[in-house]
Each structure stands twice: as C-alpha cells, then as structure tokens.
Design a binder for these strands. Sequence first.
RNA 1: GUGCCUAUAGCUUAAUGGUAAAGCACUGCUCUGUGGCAGCAGACACACGGGUUCGAUUCCCGUUAGGCACCCCA
Length: 440
Amino acid sequence: MPNKKEKIKTVNKKKQRGPRVELPQSLRGMSDILPKDELWWKTVWHAGETVSELHNFSFIETPIVEPAALFELGVGASTDIIEKEMYTFRTKGGERVSLRPEGTAPVMRSFLEHHLGYFASPLKAYYVGPMFRYERPQAGRERQHHQWGFEIIGDSDPLYDAQVIIIALDFFKALKLKDITLKINSIGCRVCRPTYKEKLKNYYQSERAKLCRDCERRLEMNPLRLLDCKEEGCRLIRARAPIILDYLCQGCNNHLKSVLELVEDNSINYEPDPYLVRGLDYYSRTVFELVHASSGLALAGGGRYDYLSEILSGRSVPAVGVALGLERIIDTMIKSGNVPHFRTKPKIFFTAVGEQAKKASLRIMSELRSSGIVVVEALGKKSLKAQLKLADKIKAPLALIFGQREVFEKTVIVRNMESGAQETVVIDRLVEEVKKRLKS
RNA sequence: GUGCCUAUAGCUUAAUGGUAAAGCACUGCUCUGUGGCAGCAGACACACGGGUUCGAUUCCCGUUAGGCACCCCA
C-alpha cells in the first residue's frame, strides 16, 4: 500500500514541476501596493480628497515623464536630486526625458503652458502620484514613492505660506496622526542669501581643520549643507556659525515674521530651525518640514518657490507648496498603532448550491448590486459548507443561501451570520428584505 | 554611489556537509444543504549563478532583493 502511494506522489511531483523559469522581479526600491494594504491607501486617499475639497483645491495631474530639462532647470542641475538621483534616458525619438523626481516643477510647467492664472488667481491645485528617485532604499526611502502635493501659484502673500502648512496639518488631522512638529526656516532671497552663504563659507573655512571629511567636501559643493552634519565635532562648530536669520533682508524678514505670526495664531506646534535648508534650488524664503516626533522622519516638506516660474519661462510668478510622502505616512500610522478608518460598506455573502442555482444566481446578484448592495460570492466552491466558511471569514453580516429547492420556490434563504437565524424570502422581495436587515 | 547585516513554504520561525520541521494561513474530509470549535488528510520552500566537496540548503565567491547607516530626501 505505502509503495503505491509513494509512486503516485513522485509522478505528481514530476508533472507539476514544469521547466524552471525565472520570474522577473520588481525593481529595487519599487514595491507593489498589495490588497492587504488597500484600506490604508483608501484611508489616505479619502483624507486627501476631503481636505482638498474643503480648502477648494482643484485636481491636476501631469505626466510621469517630462523633458529632462524641466527638472534640470527647475530643481537645479547641481542638486543631488538631479545630479545623482534622477532617472533620465533617451526615447526612440532621441529626446532626453526624465521620470519626475518631484511634483512641483511639472505643475508649474502646466500652469505656464496652459495659462492657468486665468483659471484662478492664485491657482490652488493638488496632485497625487508616483515620484522617482534613484537612491539606495532604506527606512522611509524608496525609488518609487507616492506624494500628495498642494500648490498655490500666483501670489506672494505670507498668508498662503501659512495656508499650505495648515492644509498639510489638516491632512494629518484627518488621518488622526499625532505628534507632528513644524520645523520652519527662511532661506532668504537672491538679495540676502548670497551674502549669508559667503559669511558661512568664511566661517567654516576658518574651522576647516576640525571638519569631518564630508564637510570638507560640502564646503566647496554646497555650504548650506554644512549645517546638516551630524558629526559631534561639526555640530560644535555649527553652534557658533552665523545663522541666516541675522542676514535676511528687510523683505524676507517681514515675510518670515508674518508667517510665524500666522502659525502662532493657529496654535501650530512649531520649532524655528535655523539649520533647515532644503535640497531643491527653487526654494526661496519660507522652507519647512513636518516631522513625526518618534521617528524623526519628515512626512511632508515644502516652501515658497518664487523663482521657479522665472527660471522656466522668464515670467515672474510667486508660488508656495507642500508635498506629503504617502508611504512614510502609512508606515508611521502603522508603527504608531493607528488603524485604517476608511469605512467600507457591509458585504453580504451569496451562496449557491447546484448547477441550476448557480446559473440563476448571477442575475440575482446583479439585482442586489444595482441597489447598492455589496455582494461577495465563491461560486467556484462546491459545498455550501465551504462557501459559508468564507462568509464567516469576511465577516459578512448576512449570507444568502440559494439551492435547488429555492430555485423552484423562487425564494432565497437569508441567514443572519451572527445569530444563525434564517428566514425564507421570495426573490421579488429580496432587495427590500436585505436592505431592511442591513439597516438594523 | 560607499559600508555593515540578512535571504528556508503565502506569513512567522526551526534544524542539518547526506535534499528539510512546526505554528498560522490554504485545499479537502469527518459533516451527501449550513460558518466559527475540534480531529484527520493534502498541497506548497532551501532567491539565482558559480566554486570547494564523493555529496552543499549548510562553507566560500558573485548576482539579485530586503534591512540599517552614510549621502540625500517625501
């Protein structure tokens, strides 16, 4: 006997194993969003839609691929994002194109290309979609990630700086995400920033011998980044470094003051951070990050970009915006014990036994669905037992049982899954009866 | 791009220089038209490639992917 069994086993195994093929995997740093995370993503999308509507932001969507020059000009050719992290390639037609590393430059491009200033002034628009950066993945960093962004284009009033901060915080509030701190700074304008940069460079030059190796490099490449170094020695040097606030011009100073006043007026928990500098060239004046307390991760970042339009088109259009990192937000919510609070409709489970019943059931399910009832089935399963097991698994409040007998009687059994009570209902009244039971 | 760590079933984790075990999940049976509980049975894995070896899932190297740090950023 055992011999027989073994023989069959091996035969089956051989049959099942086809030729070995290698499944192409997803690329590094690019992950699938799987059904198990559906509720998280819907929670975020729903919060985003709600907040956008309440603030009257219009929807805009730009292509994922743009001319490489858009970002090289807009974001800044010497920034790390462009220099090392952008996916740039040639198309068959020979154009140099890039996968967008961020959303602001494309929205500005669209604003200028379609003269959206005529649509609304200022234009308030939101976008959501994937962004691409060729980086080494680690916690809170992926090569493809999703951002939800808000832009206000066409006005330089500090009120709008405050508004983008508020809308981002409203987003977090809608997600019930707590412990968010606003880190804020001004990086000045092209009048005052160069002076400060020079001062900073001079100061660090004098301390050069004590700097770490990275900072020696930063001194030449990007002096503002010196302020970011986490080395103990460099931090000590930083403590006595000139800070930009002392070098802001009158205009920038007033602007920052107004923004901070508005932030305080709205009782926003904030921390002025004179060392906050952001890696994109187009920022001017206000820059900020919204940081989650326990992880220290920036969940959103933004600022004013009054020069972007000029760089792209020669026309001066002031603007301010913010972008939220969706993967980081979901990750943070999971880690801080939040639950997805997106509400799905109750699902009722339809079971059918026997060929005839199964054939007739599609029509009945259609009728239920037309009335807005979510119907789940597993008609591929033979036994009623297996079908009811699934009904239990998805926590359906009601199961409908439709078999040979019911086909003839033109009825359906409605089973309350919690109490186990069941009633026979004529098909004509099924929608009505199901609705009645879902309400109570 | 640099450095360190990791890779066993769908998931979480064992063991082993002689091709692998468990829990959860899955399929089915006990129960031919009634879920949750239980029992039983079944299917499913050593990431890929190379080397050392009589023999490698185990040791070594490479590739790929994941984690962490740097760099930078959402």
